[in-house]
C-alpha cells in the first residue's frame, strides 16, 4: 500500500459575516464544515458536488490561501496549518493549484516565458540561463512551441493558456497538484486534450491530483477515487468503480441519475431533487441533506448521521445505509 501524501482531518473553513456599522461577527458562512479524507501517492482523487458546496474553498484551504478555522492538513507528515511562513513557502513548492478560468489566472501584463522563469526565481532555482532552459523545457513538455514564450497571455487560446498554467504549476516539480475545475471553462474537444495532458504529466512526473469538477463523466474518467460533497461536508467517498456501481447516499444517487445516458432504450427513472441548496450561513440541523432528500424521515432532522465504513474505503454518511 502506498503512503498517504495528504491527510485532511476535520477541516473547517468559515467566513465570518460582520455587521455593517459595528464590525462584529454576526454569523458564519460554514463553507467547509468538518471534512476528512486522505490521498495516496500517485492517486487521483475526484471531488464533486454542486456549485457552492465548498469544493473550491477546500482547495484553497488546503494551500492556506484561506485560513481554515479548525482541523489539520497533513502534507508529507507536516501540518500545513501550523507551519510557519518559511515552511509554507516550501510546502507551496510541492503543492500546486490550477485554476478553473485560464483567462483570469495569468497576469495579462506579463510575458508567459517570464512567468515561468519568475516562479523558478522566487524559489531560487538555477541562474538566469538555467532558468530559461528549464522554463523552455516545461513549456515544450505541455505541448507548446518555445517560440511563443515572449507572448502575452491574451495572444493564446483557452486551451493553450491552461497548458501554460500547467507548465507553471509543474515547473517547481510538485508532488501534489490541486486542479480546481481545470477543464470546465474549455470547449469539449479542448477538454479532452487537457485531460490527456494531465495524465501524461502524471505518468511522467509521478504527480498526485486532487481533481475538482462538476462534470461527472470527466471525473469518472480521471479519478481513482471520488468524494462527493454537499453543503460543506463529504457525504460519500469510494473508489470510482465502486461508487458508480454502488452509490449508497441518496445525494450521490440523485447526482448520478442526472448524467445523460446515450441509450434511448434505457428508461432509468431520474431522481429529481427539489428546491435549492440551503444557505451555508444557517445549515439545516441533523443531516444537511434532509431538506431535499427523498428518503428523509424524522431522525434526519434531529441527528447528524455518522460516517459508516462499508469496507474497501467506501464511506458514507446516511442513516439509511446499513452496514451489511
Amino acid at each position: 500500500m502506498q503512503e498517504n501524501i495528504l491527510e485532511i482531518k476535520d477541516l473547517k473553513i468559515h467566513f465570518p459575516i460582520k455587521g455593517k456599522i459595528i464590525p462584529r461577527v454576526v454569523g458564519n458562512v460554514k463553507a467547509v464544515d468538518g471534512i476528512s479524507f486522505s490521498i495516496k501517492q500517485g492517486e487521483t482523487l475526484g471531488l464533486v458536488g454542486e456549485s457552492g458546496c465548498g469544493k473550491s474553498t477546500t482547495s484553497r484551504g488546503i494551500l492556506r490561501l484561506i485560513e481554515p478555522k479548525a482541523g489539520q492538513v497533513i502534507f508529507e507528515g507536516k501540518d500545513v496549518i501550523k507551519s510557519s511562513k518559511k515552511e509554507l513557502k516550501e510546502i507551496r513548492k510541492k503543492m500546486q493549484l490550477v485554476f478553473q478560468d485560464p483567462f483570469a489566472s495569468l497576469n495579462p501584463k506579463m510575458r508567459v516565458g517570464d512567468m515561468l522563469e519568475e516562479v523558478l526565481y522566487v524559489h531560487r532555482i538555477g541562474n538566469p540561463k538555467e532558468r530559461k532552459k528549464i522554463a523552455e523545457n516545461y513549456f515544450e513538455m505541455v505541448g507548446l512551441n518555445k517560440k511563443y514564450m515572449t507572448r502575452f497571455p491574451h495572444e493564446f487560446s483557452g486551451g493553450q493558456r491552461q497548458r501554460i498554467v500547467f507548465a507553471r504549476a509543474i515547473a517547481l516539480n510538485p508532488k501534489l497538484v490541486i486542479c480546481d475545475e481545470p477543464v470546465s471553462a474549455l470547449d469539449v474537444s479542448i477538454q479532452a486534450q487537457i485531460i490527456n495532458l494531465m495524465e501524461e504529466l502524471k505518468n511522467r512526473l509521478g504527480l498526485t491530483y486532487i481533481f475538482i469538477a462538476h462534470d461527472l463523466s470527466v471525473v469518472k474518467h480521471v479519478s481513482d477515487r471520488i468524494a462527493v460533497m454537499y453543503l460543506g461536508k463529504i457525504v460519500e467517498i469510494a473508489d470510482t468503480e465502486e461508487l458508480f456501481a454502488n452509490p449508497r447516499h441518496p445525494y450521490t444517487k440523485a447526482l448520478f441519475s442526472a448524467i445523460p445516458v446515450c441509450d434511448p432504450e434505457n428508461k432509468v427513472k431520474k431522481i429529481t431533487l427539489e428546491g435549492d441548496m440551503p444557505s451555508p450561513l444557517d445549515p439545516p440541523k441533523g443531516c444537511r441533506f434532509h431538506t431535499r432528500c427523498y428518503k428523509a424521515k424524522d431522525i434526519c432532522k434531529e441527528k447528524a448521521p455518522q460516517e459508516i465504513d462499508l469496507g474497501g474505503g467506501h464511506l458514507v454518511s446516511c442513516h439509511f445505509v446499513k452496514n451489511d
Binding site: 494551500l63 509554507l88 483570469a104 497576469n107
Partner: peptide, 25 residues
C-alpha cells in the same frame, strides 16, 4: 483576481505580488 491568487499559491512574497503583479495592472 485569480492570477493574484495563483501567484500567492506559488509562494511569492507580498512585495513581489504588489510590485510585479498588481501594480502594473
Amino acid at each position: 483576481q485569480e492570477f493574484v491568487e495563483a501567484v500567492r499559491a506559488l509562494g511569492y512574497s507580498d512585495s513581489r505580488i504588489i510590485f510585479r503583479h498588481i501594480l502594473p495592472n
